[in-house]
Amino acid sequence: MLLKQPAIAGTLESSDVQVTITPQDGGVKVEVDSTVKAQYGRHIEECVRETLGNLNIDNALVKVVDQGALECTIKARVECAAFRSAQVEDNYPWGGAIK
């Protein structure tokens, strides 16, 4: 998937995560800010990278502001931000791009 513009998905509500994706060369860079970073920071970064990998995104800057979201939420927000960034506007894979 080709990212075209900066895009954002999610909120700063409790148990949600706000994901900002910016097209960027030189691989995937993930910045995590989380209320549960000490115990789940590694899990969050892995989840973001795995989701991007499944969408075939190899270059991006991803900023994650997490308020204790579950992995299903993180995955959904990353996918949504990616589709918005790639300007995909129809035929969304509802239920998640990767089953």
Binding site: V36, A38, Q39, Y40, G41, H43, E71
Partner: peptide, 10 residues
């Protein structure tokens, strides 16, 4: 099973 096992604190 819902949240994953937490990493130990540093």
């Amino acid at each position: 099973s819902i949240v994953g096992a937490p990493d130990p604190l540093p």
